[in-house]
Amino acid sequence: MSDQRLTDLEVKFAEQEQTINDLSDMVNRQWQEIEQLKRKLTRAHDRILTLEDSVPDGSDAQKPPHY
């Protein structure tokens, strides 16, 4: 194997290794963002359920005078 070919392979390997590291970092950041969004969604869902529980049913509620 020629020295040039070996050097070319080493360069390609280094570039691919960097690409893999970059992609891994990107996936890690996206995973963290997904987890954060899931927590926010869970909190919003819990809040909606709490608000729904605090609103009286239609049968118990009085109609406003203009009805």
Rank of each mutant, 00 (worst) to 15 (best):
M1G: 11
S2W: 00
D3R: 09
D3A: 09
Q4D: 07
Q4W: 04
Q4T: 13
R5S: 07
R5Q: 10
R5G: 04
R5V: 11
L6T: 07
L6Q: 08
L6G: 03
L6K: 09
L6H: 02
L6F: 01
T7R: 09
T7Y: 02
T7V: 06
D8G: 01
D8C: 02
D8L: 05
L9N: 06
L9H: 04
L9E: 05
V11F: 01
K12I: 08
F13P: 05
Q16V: 14
Q16W: 03
E17I: 05
E17T: 13
Q18Y: 02
Q18C: 06
T19M: 03
I20K: 05
I20S: 01
I20V: 09
N21K: 14
N21T: 12
N21A: 12
D22S: 10
L23T: 07
S24C: 12
D25H: 09
D25M: 13
D25E: 11
D25V: 10
M26T: 12
V27W: 08
V27N: 03
N28C: 07
N28I: 12
R29D: 03
R29N: 04
Q30L: 13
Q30M: 10
Q30F: 07
W31A: 00
Q32W: 04
Q32D: 08
Q32R: 11
E33K: 15
I34R: 13
I34A: 13
I34M: 13
E35R: 11
Q36G: 05
L37E: 12
K38Q: 10
K38F: 04
R39C: 02
R39G: 01
R39S: 03
K40C: 04
L41E: 00
L41P: 00
T42N: 00
R43L: 11
R43I: 11
R43S: 03
R43E: 03
A44H: 02
H45F: 11
H45R: 11
D46E: 14
D46Q: 15
D46L: 15
R47H: 10
R47L: 15
I48N: 03
L49G: 08
T50Q: 04
L51M: 12
L51Q: 08
E52M: 15
E52A: 13
E52G: 08
V55E: 12
V55H: 12
V55G: 09
P56Q: 11
P56N: 14
D57N: 15
D57L: 15
G58K: 15
G58V: 15
S59K: 14
S59N: 13
D60M: 09
D60S: 11
A61K: 14
A61M: 14
A61G: 02
K63E: 00
K63M: 04
P64W: 00
P65F: 06
P65V: 05
P65Y: 04
Y67D: 00
Y67E: 00
